[in-house]
């Protein structure tokens, strides 16, 4: 397990806890724009954002996390991870990004070059999640080494195009979990035993 690339500083400041700020359209949009700009600079590519798609994604994500929100506070930690997965699901279901050029600063066999849009969205979700977890649980999540494995990204892109729910499982895999691949975007069937599996 390793740490995320240090781009959390690109998230806009807020006086509110991140778990609240991210559920406000104005912060979510500002954060996405700032992060995409920062990651574009790092990999050497310019992205174009579709604001209308991003607004619709935000609404769908908000409704998705509200509808599955657990009543038991003990599930908060797991639900934070799950909510990040749902965000990636909505982003990949209707991709709001277009890379205007191939990344010029990333390796040819890297995830950023293979799928620049999917890479930016995944890293955004991981970065917001990591910052929120650190704030709420004083716990900086580590990322699985599979993040460097192009075969996982290839599988992610192929499967996400067939069904966006795969994205939730992919993100949980990056966070070191073994997801329930039958229904990766349904929280109540995420048995804690599965999460504890190595």
């Amino acid at each position: 397990m390793s740490e995320l690339p240090p781009l959390s500083g690109s998230l806009p400041p807020t006086n509110e806890p991140l778990r609240i700020a991210v559920r406000r359209m104005r912060w979510f949009r500002a954060a996405f724009e700032a992060y995409v700009k920062a990651i574009g600079d790092r990999v050497g590519c310019t992205y174009k954002i579709d604001d209308a798609k991003l607004a619709a994604i935000f609404v769908r994500w908000l409704r998705a996390i509200e509808s599955q929100k657990p009543s038991n506070r003990q599930d908060r930690h797991d639900y934070f991870e799950f909510a990040a997965g749902l965000m990636l699901r909505e982003l990949t279901a209707d991709m709001p990004l277009v890379a205007l050029s191939p990344p010029s600063k990333s390796a040819p066999d890297s995830a950023a070059t293979f799928w620049p849009e999917g890479y930016a969205c995944t890293m955004f979700c991981l970065t917001v999640h990591s910052a929120a977890m650190e704030q709420e649980f004083k716990n900086k999540p580590q990322v699985s080494p599979v993040i460097e494995d192009l075969r996982h990204w290839w599988s992610f892109k192929e499967n996400a195009q067939m069904g966006a729910s795969f994205s939730v499982g992919f993100l949980l895999t990056l966070l070191g979990h073994q997801p329930n691949w039958m229904m990766p975007d349904v929280f109540r069937v995420r048995l804690s035993d599965e999460l504890k599996q190595p």
Binding site: M25, R26, R29, D51, A55, A56, F58, V59
Partner: peptide
């Protein structure tokens, strides 16, 4: 003004 812009975008989605 930023909030008004966000409210408009939300209203378009809804």
């Amino acid at each position: 003004e930023a909030v008004l812009a966000s409210a408009t975008d939300l209203a378009l989605v809804l």
